[in-house]
Every structure is written in structure tokens, then in C-alpha cells.
Simulated assay, not measured.
Amino acid sequence: MPELPEVETVTRTLNIIAAGKTIQSVKVSLPRIIQKPSEPEVFAAALTGHTIEKVERRGKFIRFVLDGLVMVSHLRMEGRYGLFAADDPVEKHTHVRFRFTDGTELRYKDVRQFGTMHLFESGEEFRQPPLVKLGLEPLEDEFTLEALRSRLASRTSKIKPLLLNQEYIVGLGNIYVDEALHSAGIHPETTADRLKPEQWRKLHLSIRATLERAVEAGGSSIKSYVNGQGDPGSFQHQLLVYGRKNEPCPSCGDPIIKTVVGGRGTHYCGACQPLPKARRSAASAPLR
């Protein structure tokens, strides 16, 4: 699933290829993509004649800001947007087509068919699902050390699942949580209430730094991710632990361990990220 850096990259690309264009018509080929309103024909009619003013990101969601309306899109596993000439052949698994008055089309393709679109009147999108309960934006000024600690420091849950919870911090997924925890020297099974002040400081810095580097690199193309212009990201070449099971840790040379934490495959270095003694007996066994 695309995480914050990938969605941010797609959002920036959409601002280049789609902002300023006026929608002439909308064709929906897979009705379940459209979550609000429930009738695809109402969705299509509502958007007709409106201009995309800008495209923004909220967590892992894309906000198409139009004149009076906002469309909220989630790419889920493999959703992607691309700009085409209206008479270009339509690729398989293209489920929504936004035809513009200039003769181009923004097409939404989704092989796995898990993506969603919601349409709201401007401002209403923040008071209803799916955006209403989203947490801190880790690349915004609101993401301070104090804000991070106030949300998580008293919790007895393991730190990795907490960081994956979008109600606390948005945009973080499996890749970037593993990378940030490694940079901060924190074992993924450490409970939040056992983190020391210096660990919180390092974690705060590593989350922001990891995401900033990933955005600069255009995200990570682990499987099929590309931006709206068809270009892959390159941050996968900078990953220190994720996907590197049994390879030497870049920091100390010990082999990277893969285990399961909170139901998610998890990569870490046992030497650089030691588990506090009180938790060691309960640690998950590494995957062989």
C-alpha cells in the first residue's frame, strides 16, 4: 500500500497534470470504487462542469479540491492515476475516467480494485469518514516532540503498532516505521510507556527525517508503485532494514532479523535495537 511519501509524490504529480482542468464528464466502470454518494451516476453528474483547483494530501488520502467540492481518493494497494488523450486506448482495470474540456482524461486504474472515492461539499470532508479521525501529519509543524509523546507515551502497547495507527500519526506504514525505528535505535516490540526521553527525541527526529528523504526520492517502488507520470520512486535503494532479512546491518554488520509484530512483517537489527530486559522473554521468535 502506498505510504505518505508515495501519496505525497502522486499528489504533487497530480497538481502538475490535472490542476486547472475542468471536468466535462465522468465515466465509472466499477461502481464500488465510489463510496459517497452511493450512486455512481450521481457522483459523475455532481463533478461535471467543476474545475480541479489543486490537489492536496491528508495522511494516505488524496484530496482533489474543486470549486465547491472535494473528492477524497484512497489508492489502497495498487491504485494509480494517469493523464491520457481522450482517444488513447483504455487499459485493462481502468475503473474511473475524468474527461476534461481540453481533450485529455485523468484515468484511475486499480488492478486489485480496493481503492475508494468519496465526494463532499467543501469543508465537509474533515467532519466525516474517512478523514474525520486522522492523527498528526508528521511533516507539518503540528508534529512536535511534545505532541508525539502526549499521544503515545502513556500507552502500554508495542511501539510499532502504535506508529501504524492512523488515528495517532498519519501516513506511516510498514516500510517507514521499520526504517524510523532502526534509525532511532528502538526495538519494534518496546512498549511506548518504557521509552526514555532521549528515545522519544530520536524517534521524533527519525520519523521526520526518514519521510523527508523518502519524499525527496519520490517514494519507494517495492512492487508496482509509480507516480502519475509513470515514474517509479527510488527510496528502496536507501532502505537500511526493510526487506533486508539476513543481510548485514549497515550500522553494525549484524544480520537483519525479520519477525512479526502486531501481525505485520517487521525488520530490525538486534544489536542496534535491543529490546528492554523486562520484555525480552515475551519477544517474538525471528522468522527462519
Results as ranks from 00 to 15, higher is better:
Leu239Gln: 08
Val241Pro: 06
Pro255Gly: 04
Leu131Tyr: 07
Gly219Tyr: 11
Glu56Ser: 12
Gly135Asn: 00
Arg208Asn: 04
Arg280Cys: 12
Ile186Tyr: 02
Glu146Arg: 06
Ile256Asn: 05
Ala18His: 04
Val90Cys: 05
Thr48Cys: 08
Ala44Glu: 03
Lys160Trp: 03
Leu203Ile: 02
Arg155Glu: 07
Leu163Phe: 06
Val28Glu: 00
Ala283Ser: 15
Glu140Leu: 10
Leu30Trp: 10
Arg97Gln: 10
Thr94Asp: 01
Pro129Gly: 08
Leu145Trp: 10
Leu106Cys: 02
Ser234Gln: 11
Ala209Ser: 15
Pro37Gly: 01
Glu198Asn: 12
Gln166Arg: 05
Lys160Glu: 09
Arg58His: 07
Ser38Trp: 08
Cys272Trp: 02
Ser281Tyr: 12
Leu181Glu: 13
Arg288Leu: 13
Leu136Arg: 08
Ser281Glu: 15
Asp178Phe: 00
Thr94His: 05
Arg244Met: 11
Ser183Thr: 13
Thr51Cys: 09
Lys60Thr: 09
Ala282Phe: 11
Pro232Asp: 11
Phe114Tyr: 12
Ala282Val: 07
Asp110Trp: 03
Asn246Val: 11
Thr210Glu: 14
His237Thr: 14
Ser284Asp: 10
Gly82Asn: 12
Arg127Gly: 14
Lys158Glu: 15
Gly173Ile: 00
Thr101Asn: 11
Asn174Gly: 10
Thr144Ser: 10
Leu119Tyr: 00
Ser284Ile: 04
Glu105Arg: 07
Gly265Ala: 02
Gln128Phe: 06
Ser150Asn: 14
Pro276Lys: 01
Cys272Lys: 03
Thr9Phe: 12
Pro130Val: 03
Pro248Gln: 04
Gly103His: 04
Gly135Arg: 01
Lys36Pro: 00
Ala18Ser: 13
Val7Ile: 13
Asp254Gly: 12
Asp87Val: 12
Thr210Val: 14
Ile23Gly: 06
Leu136Gln: 03
Ala184Gln: 02
Val261Trp: 00
Asp110Lys: 04
Pro286Glu: 03
Asp88Tyr: 07
